[in-house]
Lab assay of single mutants.
Amino acid sequence: MASQGTKRSYEQMETDGERQNATEIRASVGKMIDGIGRFYIQMCTELKLSDYEGRLIQNSLTIERMVLSAFDERRNKYLEEHPSAGKDPKKTGGPIYKRVDRKWMRELVLYDKEEIRRIWRQANNGDDATAGLTHMMIWHSNLNDTTYQRTRALVRTGMDPRMCSLMQGSTLPRRSGAAGAAVKGVGTMVMELIRMIKRGINDRNFWRGENGRKTRSAYERMCNILKGKFQTAAQRAMMDQVRESRNPGNAEIEDLIFLARSALILRGSVAHKSCLPACVYGPAVASGYDFEKEGYSLVGIDPFKLLQNSQVYSLIRPNENPAHKSQLVWMACNSAAFEDLRVLSFIRGTKVSPRGKLSTRGVQIASNENMDAMESSTLELRSRYWAIRTRSGGNTNQQRASAGQISVQPAFSVQRNLPFDKPTIMAAFTGNTEGRTSDMRAEIIRMMEGAKPEEMSFQGRGVFELSDERAANPIVPSFDMSNEGSYFFGDNAEEYDN
């Protein structure tokens, strides 16, 4: 993207840094990872977990959730003011799984939030270390993106479920800051804005008074975040219109849905970061690795190297396929839920299948599930090659597409044709070009129609051997075009429920 120079890199967003050079960025990201790792080690000690239990991804998720809940100030305040039966607002906890007599047992633990905050700050040299908290939120978000298709949420806001490739980060909490905003897809931002506008339509006082002023500035800020994701002048001009509207209503909703559809071809720039579970960072720190000293990046080879040398386990339900569970977590670790499966298959070195073909449910185990038949197995999170994460949407291309997802959002900077089903997408653009945004709409449609099938995206960008740390010898991959490109292809993934 041309304006790259004016933006802070995501590592800076990730670490609240002012302008830093590459070495400083690597050190501050490393410091953040160190903090998460030290916190995780301490929690495993508190909970008396064995090494194996500490490497269980379900335990990692519970521990991450506990610290996120302990620092969720708004919710904590709300819980104190609106006490609900049987919930102690000062405590947080969740299921911890232990191996007892050759069987997995679930144990519900409860801790004072104050105590968890103390352990977290102690692991982070006394700081609140917001960057580390956001990092864990993005890992949870990436896992949700890989596990669930947001059909219901899309339909509720009037969008087409086939636009799911635009929904990265749709389950990120509001408090995820600049680093969170960077990884949100165009569809996620559109959905947040539509929800806001709908509230304004239904509630006369939404934009009024002292609160209304705050609401208005939040609305304009979200519009600017979305505008910054678009790469064409016409899309940005249309966002200006939406932002400046005196009284946002149905016309703005129409414009936003139009823009979301246009992003299936004229893709937005959305950041991709490899955020790993805390149970990967903990053992690495415990083994003596100093992330701050060595430096770390979320968008280069580092996460690949770390996963190459990590042992992570997962509980497996009786009829689940461990290899499929591994694929789910591998995609989440690489922030690749909406990437082209052919690119992923090449990088991973084994075939990556669409969601609907995987015999696996989510990673988390519900409290009512029976533990008797639970097994555990090693997650295979290694890769054959590594590639640089991208934040450009890439230019655009036609490809055989599917009944489910009709476009992709690249996660890796790797040369390819970008699949999208042009006739299906263009069919949504018939007729409606009147109104105050008509010239911009016409211009956007013209650009979409001009998108050429034979153009290559990320020209000359390749993948790298894991021994090639400096990215000196790019390998331009070859793809098996007979395979499906979309992950949520004609899909039956479970729906995400809060």
Rank of each mutant, 00 (worst) to 15 (best):
N211D: 12
K229D: 04
C164I: 13
D491N: 14
R236Y: 01
M43S: 07
S383T: 15
K325W: 12
N144P: 07
Y40F: 05
G393T: 03
K198I: 04
T350D: 14
I475W: 02
L315D: 07
R99M: 04
E292M: 12
V463N: 01
V280N: 10
P410L: 01
L358G: 01
P303V: 12
V343P: 03
N247H: 15
D240C: 03
A131F: 00
A284N: 04
N144V: 10
L110M: 06
M456P: 00
Y313E: 04
K91S: 05
P161A: 15
R106Y: 11
E46S: 05
K7Y: 02
M440F: 05
G54S: 14
S274N: 13
S217A: 14
A451Q: 03
N473P: 00
C333S: 14
A337V: 14
G393Y: 03
Y296W: 05
K7Q: 04
D112G: 09
A337D: 05
D302W: 05
Q405K: 15
R19E: 03
A286L: 11
R55M: 08
V270N: 14
Q149C: 09
D101K: 06
Q398E: 00
S3T: 07
R75H: 09
M137G: 02
K325E: 09
Q42W: 07
Y281Q: 12
N483Q: 08
G35R: 07
N483D: 08
Q12A: 07
I347P: 02
R38M: 10
N432V: 10
K77Q: 11
A178L: 09
V270W: 02
F412H: 10
Q311D: 01
N397L: 07
G349R: 06
F338L: 06
S297K: 09
M239N: 02
R118M: 07
Q58N: 15
E64V: 04
G30K: 10
I388V: 04
R400K: 15
Y487D: 07
L79R: 07
L172A: 15
A284L: 11
D439V: 00
A284C: 00
R400N: 03
N309P: 01
Q149S: 08
S377Y: 03
E107R: 04
G435A: 07
G30M: 08
G86Y: 03
S69T: 12
M447Q: 14
M137S: 07
M196V: 13
I57G: 13
T157A: 14
Q405E: 07
S165Q: 03
H272R: 06
S165H: 02
I33H: 00
L110G: 03
